[in-house]
């Protein structure tokens, strides 16, 4: 629905202010055509627009920007999980190819770009290091009315950003524990409680998106 307009980023109003206003007044998206035209994300969470441009317009320039940002991070992440540099390079390349190939599955109301790319990198790690299949939950297919609401997208992206800040602000020891858990350096029984991470709001937002999805499927 917003395939053709997502690239028009010359919108002047502050994206954040626009998002807040929409949330506060519960204003409806009247004609449903404005979609994600407003360059919502660059000031809120970077890379959403680029990833949506890859998804909807197969925009190669946007993909190259995504590659430039996430490639070195995915490679570093994979090296922390135990791969040597050559293997991590090869796997990081494959992760980015998957980003291109599976972009049609990206849902901006349920994950930020870094979250989504993290899940692809994690699955690559399990595949290569553990040599196991990873059972995934049953998909919730999009219903006919399930085009995401812009306010939902902004809200989720903002909360992802807050979560990132909260993680950076944690006492160092606790932050290290959480990082170790995600790098695979802790067994699940060693994973301590995760106090200090504001998971509540992000969880309820995802929950809301799921409920809408289920509703639209009826």
């Amino acid at each position: 629905m917003f395939t053709t307009t997502v690239l028009s980023s010359d919108y002047q109003a502050s994206p954040v202010a626009k998002g807040m206003e929409m949330r506060d007044s519960s204003q409806e998206d009247v004609d449903g055509t404005s979609g994600l035209t407003t360059g919502i994300s660059q000031d809120v969470v970077p890379w959403v627009d680029d990833l949506l441009a890859v998804r909807d317009a197969r925009d190669e320039a946007a993909f190259i920007r995504v590659f430039g940002h996430f490639g070195p991070r995915v490679k570093a992440f994979l090296m922390r999980t135990g791969m040597d540099a050559a293997l991590a390079e090869e796997c990081a390349q494959e992760v980015l190819v998957t980003v291109w190939n599976k972009a049609h599955l990206y849902d901006a109301t349920r994950a930020s770009p870094s979250t989504w790319i993290f899940t692809i990198a994690r699955n690559k790690k399990i595949d290569v290091l553990r040599k196991q299949r990873r059972p995934e939950p049953e998909d919730l297919p999009w219903g006919p009315e399930a085009e995401p609401d812009q306010a939902d997208v902004i809200g989720l992206q903002q909360e992802s950003e807050q979560l990132g800040r909260a993680l950076r602000d944690l006492p160092e020891k606790q932050r290290e524990l959480i990082e170790k858990a995600y790098f695979g350096e802790l067994s699940h029984s060693e994973i301590a409680d995760q106090t200090g991470l504001p998971l509540g709001t992000i969880k309820s937002r995802i929950r809301l998106a799921l409920e809408r999805l289920r509703h639209s499927m009826k």
Binding site: P72, R73, V74, K75, R80, T115, I117, R122, L199, I206
Partner: peptide
């Protein structure tokens, strides 16, 4: 989804390797 978001934040804040 929220734990995956923590993973995303970890990916965002971890070092980079060219």
């Amino acid at each position: 989804g929220s734990y995956d978001a923590v993973g995303g934040a970890v990916l965002d804040t971890c070092d980079t390797v060219a």
